[in-house]
């Protein structure tokens, strides 16, 4: 019975927690952007405007759920679901604390990479099914961007895997008891952060929805709850990438005095704020710059990181025996 109830509780808890965090991120992002722009941001609904997300939710729910007559209806409905689900699935392997993980797979990292790659389907299909030129262009960009950066993202993590000697995320966290990986793997971290931004299509890599050229990119035709799913997918993405950064480079739930979960949450909070700060400060890249950065800078860096880490690990000869 315990075997079933505890994992179930974990699943439900994680799902609820992740949803709550993603939803509240809307509020957080707007407040923080306002903070850095000398404004207040949403502060009217509830204390500090915390209930803004409720208002937004009601608004989105009550909007007309419009499916364009020229759209490919089935795919049109499916796409936002894929986008949200793919992001959500990766949370199955994230160790929120030592014991709070839905499934501590031994290929956890691989699973994460696989699932985040699936996210591109949501975007591509959404843009394609919209049968809208902006949507199509947006999704084409997204496909190019996400597939490219998937490569560096995977490569950037090889260093971590080499050092941890395992793809299981809890093992990766455990491996950081002496030293968080961001010190030896700062190159990997840099590449991973940039690739993560690109994966989540955040500024400065939000070309798929560049509003001044593509209206709203792949979700131009989306409204109401379907739009909300894309929206949710994006914030889930941020949370996920933050969780991965924390898990892989900042010791995950490790930390003194406080319980592991609290440490984990604190760390991802800082990480998310960092993401938002980047959005607040940096301008959007041009598409050719994006690709050049990826293939000409990040790829060599990631490869260099693997070689150096591999060399060092080989030289120290410590963990390879696992």
């Amino acid at each position: 019975m315990r075997d079933v109830l505890i994992p179930l509780a974990v699943v439900v808890g994680v799902l609820a927690g992740v949803f709550a965090v993603a939803a509240q991120l809307v509020w957080l992002e707007r407040r923080l952007l306002a903070l850095w722009q000398d404004r207040y941001g949403p502060n009217r609904v509830g204390p500090f405007g915390l209930l803004q997300v409720v208002a937004d939710g009601i608004k989105l729910l009550s909007k007309e759920d419009w499916t364009p007559p020229f759209a490919d209806k089935g795919v049109f409905v499916l796409a936002p679901a894929i986008a949200a689900t793919a992001a959500l699935l990766s949370f199955a392997v994230v160790p929120f604390a030592q014991n709070i993980v839905i499934s501590d797979l031994n290929i956890g990292l691989l699973f994460f990479l696989a699932m985040s790659s699936l996210g591109v389907y949501g975007v591509v299909l959404g843009g394609w099914a919209s049968n809208n030129k902006y949507g199509l262009l947006g999704s084409l960009r997204a496909a190019g961007q996400m597939i490219s950066y998937e490569v560096f993202m995977g490569l950037s993590l090889c260093g971590v895997v080499l050092m941890a000697g395992s793809l299981r995320l809890n093992a990766v966290v455990e491996a950081q008891r002496e030293m968080w990986f961001f010190v030896p793997q700062f190159l990997g971290l840099a590449v991973f952060v940039i690739a993560g931004l690109a994966e989540t299509r955040r500024i400065p890599f939000d070309l798929p929805e560049a509003e001044n050229e593509l209206v709203a990119g792949y979700h131009t035709e989306y409204s109401s709850m379907k739009f909300a799913m894309f929206f949710l997918g994006e914030y889930l993405g941020i949370t996920l990438i933050s969780s991965m950064i924390v898990t892989l480079f900042f010791g995950g739930w490790l930390g003194p005095w406080l319980p592991g979960l609290v440490w984990f949450l604190l760390k991802i909070a800082v990480c998310i704020i960092g993401f938002i700060l980047i959005r607040a400060a940096l301008p959007r890249l041009r598409y050719d710059q994006l690709m050049a950065l990826g293939w000409k800078v990040l790829l060599p860096l990631a490869l260099l990181n693997i070689i150096v880490t591999g060399g060092v690990v080989l030289a120290s000869g410590s963990r390879l025996s696992d």
């Binding site: 903070l35 850095w36 722009q37 000398d38 404004r39 207040y40 700060l277 980047i278 607040a280 400060a281 940096l282």
Partner: peptide, 16 residues
């Protein structure tokens, strides 16, 4: 530098 400059705005008075 940009990030830092933007971050510092958190402590400026509000214009709203």
């Amino acid at each position: 530098t940009t990030l830092w400059r933007v971050f510092r705005h958190a402590f400026r008075p509000r214009v709203t």
